[in-house]
Design a protein around this nucleic acid. Structure first.
Lengths: 225, 225
DNA sequence: CTTACTCTGTGACCTAGGTCACACAGTACC
DNA sequence: GGTACTGTGTGACCTAGGTCACAGAGTAAG
């Protein structure tokens, strides 16, 4: 994994970025800052996959990591994204060393992170209630994300999921149809077709790599159905 | 939630049932035994759903809890099962109080459990490494289960998933087609049809509420494909 | 401008899985 | 035995979504 060592972020920034840590003891933060390994990885880096064991518990300071499953036939499925102020809990539970995950993490943008070594991670969990709470709520959120993903896949139709995805991306979506298809675990043609049908209904305007939402209410109605 | 108060299980039984707790301090176990609320609920009880907040962290002593999503149209989808020696981590992360889960937990058999009140739960997490490890590995396992469920749903076909399900249930499966369909998030007719096709191929023998696997290797080949 | 990509649109076609409707076989209780 | 219920088989039909095979349209580099 290529990486650049950069100056440590000050504890103040950490508190700001990780609200859950706002209440943490100063000792905790200085421990994180002091022992954490600060690195930057360029966009596109595979940060972990089924085969690379993880070296610590990462706090994402900047950038976005997408966690996905990749299937033999080339299709992929986005599970969730890790944003600044969050951590990858796959790595987290990796630390406790059991199950193997089939997921892959890729830096969507340049990513800056602070990796807490296992020993410190354990100590922090034991010693600091705020840190513990942070980790647990991450687990909780991811779990909730996955549950609703399961629900969406089994129960919602693709057009609904696509509508929801567009809505989540703002009024002007900049993305290729292929990228959207990947996020949904589908294929390009289908996404193109659905987008076309949205356009026919006057809900969106399409251009190359650009989708403008012109009728959010209609899309919301579809997504929520 | 109907329940019966029964005599507390001795700490020795706990150690045996929860291998992860074998290394726990005696103080930890006596705390669990002393403060835990011991109850039994009959088969069929809804132990939690989206609306009932949970009162503590449950250790399952006996019986099986199935955790599933229920959809408006009456279909359901089994997410995972909680067996003796495990705990429901949905409740666990409920305790830390954030996200709402859409899942429902139902006692598949009579279930005997020991509920650790929130305050004690927090204290144990903070104070006992073995307990902490237990909880984390639960999270890890559930996460892994859900990941592979997502994979199975999006990538595997229903016949593969059915084959895997049968294999997991032993050589003589006692279940209605409807129950199998529920576990797979599908419908009865499809399961009947697939089972029929398995029978045509000589892989299983069918009788009312009973499926005998006569060619595990063939089923394994299908499931693993 | 030409060449070479990448992205998009589209039609023909296929398949898995779901829906509906109903027949019938076990079982169970009276 | 009769009546009723639960579980199973099955055929006709529908639809979403995926696959294949292209044709163009934008864009970028030379």
């Amino acid at each position: 994994m290529p990486n650049t060592v950069a100056p440590f972020p000050p504890a103040v920034a950490l508190r700001k970025l990780f609200p859950a840590l706002a209440d943490a003891a100063s000792a905790t933060l200085s421990r994180i800052v002091g022992h954490g390994i600060h690195r930057k990885v360029p966009a596109g880096t595979t940060m972990f996959d089924a085969h690379t064991p993880c070296a610590g518990f990462p706090l994402v300071l900047a950038g976005v990591v997408k966690v996905m499953q990749q299937y033999p036939n080339g299709r992929e499925m986005l599970l969730y994204k890790v944003r600044p102020g969050e951590s990858c809990l796959l790595s987290g539970s990796c630390l406790l060393g059991h199950t193997n995950y089939t997921a892959t993490g890729i830096a969507e943008t340049e990513v800056e992170l602070l990796v807490i070594p296992p020993a410190d991670f354990n100590a922090l969990i034991a010693g600091d209630a705020a840190f513990r709470k942070h980790v647990f709520s991450l687990f909780g959120e991811r779990l909730a994300t996955l549950l609703s993903l399961v629900e969406a896949i089994t129960y919602q139709k693709l057009d609904q999921r696509l509508a929801a995805l567009l809505l989540a991306k703002g009024d002007f979506v900049h993305a290729t149809h292929q990228a959207l298809a990947d996020e949904l675990g589908s294929v390009r043609e289908i996404v193109s077709r659905l987008l076309r049908s949205f356009e026919d209904k006057g809900w969106v305007d399409l251009a190359r790599e650009r989708i403008e939402l012109t009728d959010r209410t209609a899309l919301e109605a579809l997504a929520g159905a």
